[in-house]
Nucleic acid binder design. Structure first.
Lengths: 234, 234
DNA sequence: GCGCGATTTCTTGTCGACAAATAAAATGCA
DNA sequence: TGCATTTTATTTGTCGACAAGAAATCGCGC
C-alpha cells in the first residue's frame, strides 16, 4: 500500500498538484527510473500522490504533448520508447540546434547571460573532475539551455530544450557504460564556445558548435553501434 | 441559449469529444475567429459542445502546450497574443525550417510523397487562380507540411507545423489587406522547389527555399511596417 | 486437452458537484 | 463624492462516482 508521498497529506496550494506530479513524473522518465515502454496507471499514481485522478490526467496530457508519454485510446498510457532506428534524426536535429542557438547567443546575449553560462561551465568542470556522470549530463543540459536562452528565439529554445531532455535519456545509457575517465575534452570545447560567444564571433560559434555536436554524436553512435542493447531494443 | 452544436446531442464515440473540441477550437484560433487575447470560458464551451467541462479542459491543456492559448492560475484562459515585437524570431525560425525540411525532402522523399505534394500544388494554383486568399493560406500550410513530412525528421516536422500554424494567423492579417491580385510568383517558386526535390538536388533546394522564405518575410514585414495596426497591437 | 465465446475485471473517459480563488458589486465611512 | 472594506458572484481546480471499452478469465463444447 503506497503512502501518499510522505510530506503531502494535504495539498499545499490550489494549483500545485499538477505541477508537482508533472515535474516529478518528468524527472523519473528522463532519469530512466520509469523505463521506456512501461505502462502508467492513473489510479496508482493517484493514490501515490494522494490526490484525485483529474490532476494526474492533466499532467499526463502535458507530458504527451512533449512526446514523453504515448497514449492510446481507452488503453493505459506508457512512457514513450526511444526510437533507436531513427536516432539519426535526433542527431541531425540537435546538431542544427546547437549551431543555431550558439550563433544567436553570439549575436543577442547580454552580460547576465554570460554570467549564468560561465557559472554553469564551472559546475560542469567540477562534475567532470568529480567523475560524476549523472551531474555532468544534467549540467550539460542546463548549460546548452542557457546558451539557447541567450539567443532569445523561443521557437529554437523550445525545440532545443525538448532535444536536450530527450538526449538526457540517451546520454544516460551512454555514460553509464564508462564510469571512469570522463572526457576532459568537452570542458575545453565548452570553454572555446563560451569565449566565441563572448567575442560575438558568429562564424566561429557555428564551427565550434558543429564540431562539438559532431564529436558527441560520433561517440554515442560508436557506442550504440557496438552495443548489443541496441539490437535488443529494436 | 446556445444549442449543443446542431448535430451532436449525443457523443458519437467515447474518445471523440476532446478531439472535436480541440480541432474546432484550434481552427477558430488560427482563423482569427477567436481574436488573440479573448478570454475562454470553460462552462460556456461546455454548454456549446453539449459536454462536461472535463474534455474541454483537456483540449485547452493541449492547446496551451502548443502555445495557442495561455493560462493563468485560477483565471480564465485566453487566446495567446501574437508577439509583434519579436516577430523576427518567427521569421528566422520559419526560414530555417523551410530550408532544412526542403533539403531533407530532397534526400529522403519517396514517390508517394511527391504525389501528395504535387496534388497540393495543383490545389494551390487553383486557389490563386480563384483569388481565394483563405484557401491559399490553408493549402500553403498543407503543402509545406507535406514537404516536411517527406523529410522524415519528426523534430523538424513538429516545429515546422507549429510555425506554419502560427504563420496562418499572421498571413491572415497580411492577405486580408489585398483581396485582389494574389501573387502568381509563389506558384512558380513552389513549382521550382518541387522540381528540385524530385531531382534530389539538395543545394538547389536550400537556395530556393531560402529565397522563397525571404521573399515572403520581406513582403509581410513591409506590410506590417507600414500598417498602423502593428503599433496599435503593441 | 483445446479452441472459442461469454463473462468478469480492470482501466480509462466523462459527468455533476463542491470548494478555493479571484473578480465584481455593494456597503460603510470620512 | 471618493475611497476602503465587506459581501456577493463568477470561474477555476479538484473530487468521487459511473459507464464504456478492452483485456483477462472462465466455461462450455468438441
Amino acid at each position: 500500500m503506497a503512502e501518499p508521498e510522505h510530506e503531502a497529506l494535504q495539498e499545499r496550494k490550489r494549483g500545485s498538484g499538477v505541477k508537482r506530479v508533472y515535474e516529478l513524473l518528468r524527472d523519473e522518465i528522463l532519469d530512466l527510473k520509469l523505463p521506456p515502454g512501461s505502462p502508467i496507471d492513473e489510479v496508482h499514481l493517484a493514490e501515490r500522490f494522494g490526490m484525485s485522478r483529474t490532476p494526474i490526467r492533466e499532467a499526463l496530457v502535458r507530458l504527451a504533448g512533449e512526446g514523453l508519454v504515448e497514449t492510446l485510446p481507452n488503453r493505459s498510457a506508457m512512457v514513450s520508447n526511444i526510437d533507436f532506428v531513427n536516432l539519426h534524426t535526433f542527431f541531425d536535429a540537435i546538431t542544427l540546434m546547437y549551431r543555431v542557438t550558439t550563433r544567436l547567443a553570439a549575436q543577442y546575449h547580454r552580460p547576465e547571460d554570460l554570467d549564468r553560462i560561465r557559472a554553469l561551465q564551472v559546475s560542469y568542470a567540477a562534475a567532470v573532475d568529480a567523475q560524476d556522470a549523472l551531474a555532468m549530463v544534467a549540467i550539460n543540459r542546463d548549460l546548452h539551455a542557457a546558451i539557447a536562452e541567450a539567443g532569445r528565439n523561443p521557437y529554437f529554445t523550445t525545440l532545443t530544450l525538448r532535444l536536450l531532455d530527450e538526449g538526457r535519456r540517451i546520454l544516460r545509457l551512454y555514460y553509464q557504460s564508462f564510469d571512469d575517465r570522463l572526457p576532459r575534452e568537452y570542458v575545453d570545447e565548452h570553454e572555446a564556445i563560451i569565449a566565441a560567444i563572448a567575442a560575438r564571433d558568429v562564424d566561429l560559434c557555428d564551427r565550434l558548435a558543429r564540431a562539438h555536436a559532431d564529436q558527441i554524436v560520433r561517440q554515442v553512435q560508436q557506442f550504440f553501434a557496438r552495443d548489443q542493447r541496441m539490437n535488443v531494443a529494436l
